[in-house]
Amino acid sequence: MHSTDHIQAELAAISELLANANSKGRPYAVPEGYFERLPMIMLLKIGQLTASDDSAAAETESLSPLLAGLNKKMPFAVPEGYFAQEAVQPGLLDRLEKKMPYQVPVGYFDGFPDKMLATVTGQQKGGAKIVSFGRPWMRYAAAAAIVAVVAVSGWFYMHKTTNVADFGKDNGDVAAQLQHELNQLSDDAILEYNDSPAADGSANVLAANDDELNATDIHFLLEDVSDNALQDFLNLEKPGKDAILHN
């Protein structure tokens, strides 16, 4: 079977009306000589595109004569002397008529290379002090001591009804020991612990708990809950609606 016969049979199986109708003629008109001229038109277009790739101005002109005709001078003002240096050609932007309208502080570019050099060499020559313990076990010791302090403080808080005098009698030696250990720690060790991920972690949890839910969060949380389920929940909770909204 020829493929056209196959297609015709398929069409007939789907729609006899279409298969029997003489609908494959071309109802649209094509301008006279269009197909004869098309190869030449395409060659011209390709040539134009290739040429315009090297000339942004020509491309802009072809896309929008209005935009191409605009003065490219930027309305932003530049502080006096900002570009004043030998390496810069002052007339370059003017010649291109693409001067920005923005202002730049006076002398900004004059001193900029030296500032950058000072910044990067300062970085390299130890401008920033890096504090290091050198021995990893000290970090763990500092962390353990801090955890111990937190644990004891927590115990104090939970048992704050305990008589202070009794506590002192029973736990004074422990507290004194901890205090002694803490005194032995350097400030750097304590600061190091505070900057450690372990300390950050607990702070982040607290911060996260303090954050209020915004509309996006609520949308995200309720994404998988059906409208019916939500409606049922609201019906159940109607008396306490305000409380829900405020909590």
Partner: peptide, 14 residues
């Protein structure tokens, strides 16, 4: 911007 002028084409462009 202190130099902004809504009537100037270069500012409109920005």
């Amino acid at each position: 911007d202190k130099d902004f002028d809504a009537n100037k084409i270069e500012w409109k462009l920005q």
